[in-house]
Design a protein around this nucleic acid. Structure first.
Lengths: 242, 242
DNA sequence: CCAAGTTGTCTATGATAGTAGACAACTTCA
DNA sequence: TGAAGTTGTCTACTATCATAGACAACTTGG
């Protein structure tokens, strides 16, 4: 590999090495606690200077994914959160099942009006008043995802304040008398984090994110809320059950 | 935005701009055929030099996502493939439903032995003989995903040759008398494409990919094949039905 | 036709990425 | 204890990234 080989992809060489190692950890090629190959060996496999490898490892170390021990080697630290995509999915339950402490925090709540697409998802008319809630969810102290949630301002007046107090979408819906709800059709794609989300997720720029668009319905199929969520890809894996 | 602000994320500034525009297209902020804002305006919104914006647009143009018209503006070209993740999912049907021509191609077939994890997925013993099939799937002439597929070499002798001839996993299984099958538990995550897959998917280095691990079962639940697929995130979106 | 607004091309300059080599500091193991 | 192998630090050089300004070529709408 070399700067010419990248064909000017716009990613630094050390980033490619770091991503390669990280994927090796995600794949299970390197398990938690394992010792990585030496810097020289990594440099040879990626056909890259040792200093470039060091830069890659430094970036991974800063994110807590590996840990370097002088004279000995560099060791793997990390683990992903398993996130089942069932129709009845609650963030707090998933995180709790992983033995971690779930948290939610309101970033911002504001009034908004429905675009044509939002209106269609929520079964409202274009231009209908909405509440827009920007929130972040964490496991222990690690940010997992940021979500933009839209609800009808007529059905859920003051939803922003309620969310700020309860810090939970489930409790917010309970407050309005919704006892149970189900996830509807869900779109999943991947992208690169933007500057705003990078800061909120405590993620370096350029990292991959999983983008999930979903609408929750009550038990008779009436749309309640529609969400646009961005997950730090390196901290989570989705499980789709058949 | 500036080179200092990126905090050395390892991605070039023009890449961040290109990714931002691309995400705007994916989100529907810019629809197919729309005119993008002028280079000067984009430069202002990203707080970046116009030359940097030009570089970003040039990269998008080379990938066929936008088209620049001198004196007039820059216009959007692209569309994503909607990929439903139902338990009975066939690539050719999905692509056909999108009005495009599905293709498959064998990259490589080889003998392999089951690691502990592969053995567990396939209900075999560690070290059992496997056939490993590396294949690529395309819609029209656009590569959509590369998959590594493992099957028991005892249950499916010569599977590599059969796949090379039929170019379809469904037809391969039919050849061995499997009339129907279902997708089992599926893990989805995101990452950055590596050099090998980048070449196969005709993607620039550093682009995001959707990584899908799944095992297909016959109708009584016996594991048939297990797959590790990498999708070009910019060309596909997964739909999970409730 | 003209003015305003667009993309295309050129030159120039400072900051950063990547390569290269040498050596120090430390750990492991025989 | 000593040799081999590891990570840490320093200097130096080249290519690329990003910015900056100026102007050409072209399209659109009045």
């Amino acid at each position: 590999m070399s700067m010419q080989d990248t064909a000017s992809s716009g990613v630094a060489l050390w980033r490619l090495v770091a991503d390669g190692i990280e994927r090796g950890i995600a794949d299970g090629r390197f398990a938690a606690g394992d010792k990585l190959p030496g810097e020289m060996e990594i440099a040879e496999t990626y056909r890259v200077n040792r200093h470039t490898v060091r830069r890659a490892l430094a970036a991974l170390a800063e994110r807590g994914i590996v840990r370097a021990e002088r004279g000995s080697g560099t060791y793997v630290e990390a683990q992903k959160l398993a996130y089942p995509l069932r129709s009845r999915t609650r963030f707090s339950e998933i995180v709790g099942a992983d033995g971690r402490e779930p948290h939610g925090r309101l970033i911002e709540a504001s009034e908004d009006v429905a675009t044509r697409e939002l209106a269609k998802e929520l079964g409202l008319k274009t231009g209908a008043p909405l509440v827009r809630i920007e929130a972040i969810r964490l496991a222990d102290r690690t940010p997992i995802c940021v979500s933009t949630t839209w609800l009808s301002a007529e059905l859920f007046p003051g939803a922003g304040e309620v969310f700020a107090a309860t810090r939970s979408m489930t409790k917010l819906l309970e407050h309005y008398g919704v006892r149970d709800y189900r996830r509807g059709a869900t779109r999943i794609t991947a992208g690169i984090v933007d500057a705003t989300d990078a800061a909120r997720l405590d993620l370096p720029l350029g990292r991959p994110i999983l983008v999930v668009d979903a609408t929750d319905h009550d038990l008779v199929g009436k749309p309640l809320v529609t969400k646009h969520s961005r997950f730090a890809a390196e901290r989570v894996e989705f499980l789709v059950e058949p």
